[in-house]
């Protein structure tokens, strides 16, 4: 199951963060990189608590840190930038 989070941060090139819950193994790398954006829920899966909290760079670093590529980043033109 994919969960989408719409980002509306001004000046950001990222429009959407998607977490693929079937891929997430709860390693919490994303939480360690961007605690303002992510937390683990009761099922030990990553969820976005605030899609507007971090810079674009931090969001991409957090997505890249995921060992199972469970975080997908979409830009303003609906293009997938990562992975």
């Amino acid at each position: 199951m994919r969960k989408e989070y719409i980002r509306t941060k001004e000046g950001s090139n990222i429009s959407k963060i998607i977490v693929d819950r079937d891929l997430c193994i709860g390693a919490a790398s994303c939480v360690a990189v961007s605690a303002a954006t992510y937390k683990l829920d009761d099922e030990n899966k990553a969820v976005v608590i605030d899609p507007n909290a971090a810079s674009d760079e931090e969001l991409i670093t957090a997505a890249k840190s995921c060992p199972t590529k469970a975080i997908i980043i979409i830009d303003k033109e609906e293009k997938q930038i990562y992975p």
Partner: peptide
């Protein structure tokens, strides 16, 4: 950087920082 790793088994989550 402060790095960490988290794992889960039998409903127990263990995290090292």
């Amino acid at each position: 950087m402060v790095t960490s790793y988290s794992t889960n088994g039998f409903g127990v989550t263990i995290c090292f920082v």
